[in-house]
Simulated scan of single mutants.
Amino acid sequence: MTVSRALSKPELVSEETRNRIEQAVRELGYVPNLAASALVTRRSGVVGALITTITNPILATTIEILQQGLSKAGLHMLIGETRFSPEEETKMLRAFLGRQLDGLILAYGYHTPETLALLQAARIPVVELWDLPEGDEPRTPVGQVVGFSNWAAGAAAGQHLVDCGYQRPAFFGYEDARENLRWQGFRQAVVEGLGIEPLRYNTSAIPHIDDGVAVIERYVRGELEFDGAFFTNDMPAIGALFTCQRNGIDVPGELGICGFGDLPIARVASPALTSVRVPAELVANTTVELLTQQIKAEGVGAMLNDVGSELIARESTARRSS
């Protein structure tokens, strides 16, 4: 009983006894049978996290903070990458639920009907990251939500380009529900500010630095006409910025470039990149707090948690002279 207590609730055992047990565990190479323990306690100590992509630096930072926070709460995190595919999310969710999760984190708010049915049947705490329900037909959250308004983020970028004097702003992103919300906000800001329909050009579903390279190469060939660009990810924006430099294109004089995510490279690029910042650390910490509260039955907390976003204006969109 003392050994069991030392392994499951070490704070209840004296330091001397705990040290002796930990030494015996190391010498014997003992690994507790968590599956058997879960049958008794109905707790696995494992939280699943289905992430769209682990290559995105913002999400990588979020994952790191989630891991640290959950570890302090005595929980372990199992990570799966969906690559922005709702169908892949469904397949991974089936595999994850077989491991008797204590809770689930979803880094995307749009799901297949099968995923929704699985979540309803699982009856475990769920927190969705990044996307607040909004738009003409807002989605119904499957759990608590920690995120920001994609519409407002797009509108801020569009308004900023208009205010800086750009006459032909363009939107560069990919085609999905939350990108469409950013586009709607961006478009409204441009239409109201300039009375024109902005260009929308779809890039790859997994944002990559090469997307920005391809956009500027098409601009150089005269295939795309714009003077201010909003990329919905900093990596394509950086690719565009570097390609402008290689082609002798003045940024921000000839082209203004704005990104999304405010990665560290945005601050050290030359010229420094204007970007929309989402507080990843606040997203992760709030998620840990809400999830652990539910797992420990300490309350539910707010269902919708808006962390907001902020446009950080830098040299790449400096105000143009009239």
Rank of each mutant, 00 (worst) to 15 (best):
F230P: 01
L255Q: 09
F172E: 09
L59W: 05
N285L: 14
Q100P: 04
E22L: 15
I51R: 01
V251G: 08
P279T: 00
P236V: 04
N180Q: 15
E114N: 05
S14L: 15
P198W: 10
A60H: 10
A266D: 00
S149N: 07
I79W: 01
T55H: 07
Y110A: 09
L181K: 13
L59S: 07
E11I: 12
A297F: 05
D163W: 03
S149Q: 08
L129N: 02
N150Q: 12
V307I: 14
I249K: 06
G173R: 02
R246L: 11
L116E: 08
E22A: 10
T52D: 10
F230W: 02
S14Y: 08
A237K: 02
S37K: 14
I79E: 01
A35G: 12
K91N: 05
F148C: 03
V278N: 00
Y110Q: 11
R168K: 14
D250E: 15
E81Q: 14
Q67K: 06
T17I: 15
Q184S: 15
F231N: 03
Q167T: 14
P57T: 07
Q159A: 12
H208W: 10
Q184A: 15
E134D: 10
L291P: 02
T52M: 08
S8F: 07
M303R: 11
G256R: 04
P169D: 11
F260E: 02
Q294K: 07
T203Q: 11
G74F: 00
D102N: 06
E81P: 01
T286Q: 10
T2M: 15
P207Y: 07
A122I: 08
R267D: 10
S204C: 13
P86R: 05
T82I: 02
P252L: 10
H76N: 13
V220M: 08
E81N: 12
V127M: 07
A177H: 08
L304S: 10
C244M: 13
I124E: 03
T232I: 07
F242N: 14
D131E: 13
A177Q: 08
P125A: 07
E114S: 12
E81G: 00
A36G: 15
E11V: 13
G308H: 03
R221S: 14
A121Q: 12
P236G: 02
R319I: 10
L255P: 14
D176A: 04
V268P: 00
Q67N: 11
S71I: 06
Y30W: 15
R123C: 04
P133Q: 13
T90Q: 10
G228V: 09
H76R: 11
G195Q: 05
V278E: 01
I196M: 09
L118I: 13
V215W: 02
D176Q: 05
Y201P: 00
A24S: 12
P207H: 08
E217Q: 14
V278Q: 05
A73R: 09
